[in-house]
Each structure stands twice: as structure tokens, then as C-alpha cells.
């Protein structure tokens, strides 16, 4: 009898454990890859609700998540250690959450797919990313400065600058340092390009080439978080964007002063 009771309790406990694990993993994946806090809260509450938890309490911050449901297990913490920009993962989590709400997958499948999603990252092929960096730089230089002759050199400099950023972020995981180095490389290449007669205006080339480095995700999320009332995470993202911008600015300023 005692054993039966224990088994009954442990299956309920397992279920609660699974709910917490699924919701926390979903939340962590979303924050790690650049989601705003309100969406994370919304998704996690939905998962808990759809899984049958009567109430759920959440505390979501940019560096960690705390979640409790009124069941057999206590509150659990999930730290958020790294932050990158991979918006596809957010879309996938969103999609899985919708499928779970429509009862197309069960909780165990949901959890397994999240763990799988967490372990693999499916970026666009490397050559396409390089091409994309070139195609952010060149067209924006033309749109901003109307300097058509410098289009090609801006594409090349922007692509090389982004390559420096990409390689450095792979080997030293400090984003601000990679941004600084990439900006410095862009400055040097722009000055050299004009010296060699490949371009007319150092200013225009640099303006176009730094555009792939613009911290678009932190800027947008910071505004959205502050508006939603997340007065801790919003300004934290704002600082992230500001430090990125300052790193790029210092990189450029250093080159302009020396060359």
C-alpha cells in the first residue's frame, strides 16, 4: 500500500518535474538567442497552463529564470550564461509551443525537441553570411550617402570587417572586443582602399561597412522590455547596446587618429 502511494506520488512528481524542465529550457533557449522578456514569460506560462499546472509563478531576468508551479516539486532556477543572436531558435520554440497547445505533440516530445534544439545550431551557410555582410554594407552606403562609385569597395570592406568579427567571436568569446577589432580593421581597410585609389571617401566606406555590426537585437529588445515594464532587463540590454556602439566607435576613432 505504501509502495502504491509512493509510486502514485512519484509519477505526479515526475510529471511536475517534466513541466518545469520543459518550461525552463524553453525560456532559457529564448533568452539566450535574443528574445524579449515578455515573450519568454508568456510562452512559459502557456506551457505550464497547457500542461495542466493550475498556477505558475515566474521570475524572468536576462541572466536567469526562476519558476515554480503548485505541485509536488519546489521552485527551480535556470541560469542564462551566454547570449547570442539566433532568432530562428526563438521561432522554433514559438512553433513548438503552438503545436503543444494544439495537442499535436505531447510534453515528452516537446521536451526532447527542445533539448535537441538546444544542442544543434542551424545557421545559414558561411558563404551566405559573408555575402549578406557585403550586402548590408554596400546598399546602405548608397542609400545613406548616394555615393555609387564606392559601392564595391564598401561591400568588400564590410565583408572583411564582419569576417574579423566572426572569427574573433569564435575564438575569444568577448563580443565587445571582437566588435572593437572589427571596427579597427574596417577603419584600416577603408583608409588603405582610398590610398590605393579603390574608393573616393573614407567616411562613406566606413559608414556603410560598420552597418553589419550594428547591435540591432539589443536596441529593439531594450525598448520593448522597458515599455513592457521590465525595468531590470530593459536597461541591461540598453547597456549592452551602448557598450557595443562604444566599442565600434572607439575602434574607428583610434584608426582615424593614427592614420
Amino acid at each position: 500500500m505504501l509502495r502504491e502511494g509512493k509510486d502514485g506520488m512519484s509519477s505526479q512528481k515526475k510529471r511536475d518535474q517534466l513541466i518545469l524542465h520543459t518550461a525552463l529550457t524553453a525560456g532559457r533557449i529564448m533568452i539566450e538567442n535574443g528574445s524579449e522578456i515578455e515573450r519568454v514569460e508568456d510562452t512559459m506560462t502557456r506551457i505550464a497552463h497547457n500542461a495542466g499546472a493550475q498556477t505558475s509563478q515566474l521570475f524572468v531576468m536576462i541572466t536567469g529564470i526562476l519558476m515554480a508551479i503548485n505541485g509536488e516539486v519546489g521552485a527551480q532556477i535556470e541560469p542564462v550564461k551566454r547570449r547570442t543572436f539566433d532568432l530562428e531558435k526563438i521561432a522554433v520554440v514559438n512553433d513548438l509551443s503552438r503545436q503543444y497547445a494544439d495537442h499535436k505533440i505531447d510534453l515528452q516530445q516537446f521536451s526532447n525537441r527542445l533539448d535537441h534544439l538546444d544542442s544543434v545550431s542551424r545557421y545559414f551557410p558561411f558563404w551566405l553570411q559573408l555575402l549578406a555582410a557585403a550586402l548590408v554594407s554596400g546598399p546602405l552606403e548608397v542609400v545613406f550617402r548616394h555615393n555609387l562609385p564606392d559601392f564595391w569597395i564598401t561591400c568588400v570592406v564590410g565583408m572583411l570587417g564582419w569576417l574579423v568579427y566572426y572569427l574573433l567571436s569564435k575564438f575569444i568569446q568577448i563580443r565587445f572586443l571582437s566588435e572593437f577589432a572589427a571596427a579597427a580593421a574596417i577603419g584600416v581597410l577603408a583608409v588603405l582602399g582610398v590610398h590605393m585609389g579603390l574608393g573616393n571617401s573614407v567616411d562613406d566606406i566606413i559608414i556603410g561597412s560598420v552597418m553589419p555590426l550594428v547591435p540591432g537585437v539589443p536596441i529593439t529588445n531594450s525598448v520593448r522590455d522597458i515599455l513592457a515594464g521590465n525595468l531590470v532587463s530593459g536597461p541591461a540590454r540598453g547597456v549592452e547596446a551602448l557598450v557595443s556602439a562604444a566599442a565600434i566607435g572607439f575602434g574607428i576613432a583610434m584608426i582615424l587618429q593614427f592614420m
Binding site: G34, F85, D86, L87, E88, A91, Y123, F124, L128, Q129, L131, A132, A133, A134, L135, V136, P139, L140, V142, V143, W162, M211, P212, V214, G216, V217
Partner: peptide
């Protein structure tokens, strides 16, 4: 054309579906 291409390319850099 420039705005369209640049927006799309930035989307590729941050891995938008």
C-alpha cells in the same frame, strides 16, 4: 532596392527563418 537588400541581408546575419 538598397533598403530591401540590406534589410534582408541583416536578417540573414542574425539567422532569421
Amino acid at each position: 532596392a538598397g533598403t530591401y537588400v540590406a534589410t534582408l541581408a541583416f536578417g540573414i546575419l542574425i539567422n532569421i527563418p
